[in-house]
């Protein structure tokens, strides 16, 4: 089927099946899946500027129902989410302007592809390192319960290898200071929140998708937000960045809404199936299983750059 807006020729079944698998992995691991959706669209022959804009539209559709579920569960810190909007929107716009710049002055496909590869390899390596350290800590904790390592457990009970880092951020006195009772953060500089939001938005606007791979770890490790609140608040932020990103990229001619609609149809059932599967396959090593996914996305982009885009 021809997608006349971007000029791509893609089998809609292949697109829906891709959406299904991305949705399933997303539902299973609790992530948006842009680390695979973007590379897959590029592989199917969609130009990189359309990959970014279309993935943003696709992610809005996916996040709406997920955010509704998290809102019902009380997992969204709306105060934090609204404050972050002030950083997210300028971040998305900076990313979108960068895409426009590279569209005019350079090869947008190669620039975004290389940036994507760098980000995906970094995310995979960081997740592997963090998961191994956390698993080792949990094992040590179980072995010697009396020797509880306070600095490695956040105030809200999350075990993490980097929980101590957030505590160091909280003592930075950079007015105005904000209180986030829902997230259990007594005092934190507004500038830190805006900086985290800006970078999340920048990645979202430049590489597409929700940028949960950068915002989620930042919320947990830099702001010290408990993981379940971070997941819900990140989804809220994904709707903001995805919504604004869709509008600004659509205006700049970077969104093929038909591709987003077709891909999303598969994604919905995949996400529900993935969420159902977590009841049967959950376990502490689930985060380690996530590690190969960003690396697979990077490999797909490298393959496409080396051997050309798949058309048909």
């Amino acid at each position: 089927m021809d997608f006349p807006i971007s000029g791509a020729h893609i089998n809609p079944v292949a697109l829906a099946v891709t959406g299904f698998f991305i949705g399933m992995l997303g539902g299973f691991f609790g992530v948006g899946g842009s680390f695979l959706a973007g590379p897959a669209l590029f592989f199917f022959g969609v130009p990189m500027n359309f990959v970014v804009g279309t993935d943003l539209a696709h992610i809005v559709g996916k996040s709406v129902s997920a955010a509704r579920q998290h809102s019902k569960l009380g997992n969204i810190d709306f105060k934090l989410g609204v404050l972050m909007m002030a950083g997210t929107i300028p971040g998305v716009e900076t990313g979108a302007q960068a895409i426009e710049y590279f569209k005019r002055h350079a090869n947008v496909n190669q620039v975004v592809a290389f940036a994507f590869i760098g980000v995906l390899i970094s995310v995979g390596a960081f997740m592997a390192w963090e998961s191994f350290r956390t698993l080792r800590m949990s094992r040590r904790e179980r072995r010697d319960k009396s020797h509880m390592i306070g600095a490695q457990r956040s105030g809200n009970g999350d075990v993490s290898a980097l929980a101590g880092f957030a505590k160091r951020i909280h003592v930075l006195e950079l007015a105005p200071m904000i209180n986030l009772p829902k997230s259990g953060v007594k005092r934190i500089s507004l500038w830190i929140i805006l900086l985290v939001a800006y970078f999340g938005g920048l990645f979202s606007g430049f590489l597409g998708g929700g940028a949960g791979y950068i915002r989620m770890p930042s919320l947990v490790y830099i702001l010290g937000v408990p993981t379940h609140i971070a997941v819900g608040t990140d989804l809220f932020e994904v709707i903001i960045s995805g919504g604004y990103g869709t509008l600004t990229h659509a205006f700049k001619g970077n969104v093929d809404i038909l591709i987003a609609l077709v891909m999303h149809t598969g994604g919905v059932i995949g996400a529900h199936l993935g969420a159902t599967l977590t009841n049967y396959f959950r376990g502490p090593r689930i985060r380690l299983a996530f590690v190969p996914l960003p690396l697979a996305g990077a490999a797909l982009i490298i393959y496409t750059l080396m051997f050309g885009r798949h058309v048909g």
């Binding site: 559709g61 709406v64 509008l247 659509a250 205006f251 969104v255 609609l261 149809t265 919905v268």
Partner: peptide, 23 residues
């Protein structure tokens, strides 16, 4: 382009709501 811009977001949100109902 301006009309297209303001059609994209409602379209994907409406589809998300509809498919969510179906699922």
């Amino acid at each position: 382009r301006a009309v297209y811009t303001f059609v994209t977001l409602p379209l994907i949100i409406a589809q998300a709501a509809l498919l969510d109902l179906v699922v």
